[in-house]
Design a binder for these strands. Sequence first.
DNA 1: ACAATATACCTCGCCTGTCAATGTATATTA
DNA 2: TAATATACATTGACAGGCGAGGTATATTGT
Lengths: 109, 109
Amino acid sequence: MTISADLLRGYTDAVILRQLTGGDGYGYQISKEVSRLSGGRLEMKEATLYTAFRRLEGAGFIRSYWGDETVGARRRYYSLTDEGKNRLNEEVAAWHETREVLNKLLEEE
Amino acid sequence: MTISADLLRGYTDAVILRQLTGGDGYGYQISKEVSRLSGGRLEMKEATLYTAFRRLEGAGFIRSYWGDETVGARRRYYSLTDEGKNRLNEEVAAWHETREVLNKLLEEE
DNA sequence: ACAATATACCTCGCCTGTCAATGTATATTA
DNA sequence: TAATATACATTGACAGGCGAGGTATATTGT
């Protein structure tokens, strides 16, 4: 089962930022890692991913630079800024909040 | 703290359907009940709520009828259909799925 | 040799859910 | 009699997700 788009809406940014806490990363890699960690249940679409990179960089949460690969396709690497770290903390807190509320509102009797 | 719109996106329908499992209800009441149950952390906007009612009724998940109030403002009541019950089960299952995935993807080391 | 697949990037334009703003009407309370 | 609560509803703007399309290099299978 693959998680539907709308259920994840708003968490894309947090997921990406979280992936960058372990070190710089690039699009394709993050996409594969998210897929792996989620057991194939979350497949971030390319358009979604790259849209998010633009948004996050525009907001100052990540910075990018081209890698110096001598073989294979070029890679654009992203690194988390201090603002990005703060943002991630906020988004994780919001997730905990949301999780509580939805548990309450959707729980069975 | 109020839960941001985007984090809830996609759960509005499930929250409404869930509220109707205890018996028929109407917009204003559901809105207040959700607010109460969430400890004021989720305030469903009227436009969002009524848009959802139209969507859910169009899809056959709920049915509506006018109440016979002799005093006060008229009320439009909604009741859950069998399809709506099935849908709710699916949406709750999707929530559990999503919750697991996000826990995994956002967890700290 | 060459087709298929994997790696790796990117953008355009549509779709859909949210919601501010706005409007209607009745009942109660200060 | 003004304000607030109850109760419904629509319109149009906005933002995120993503299908479809495009570019380029490297590897693997036949």
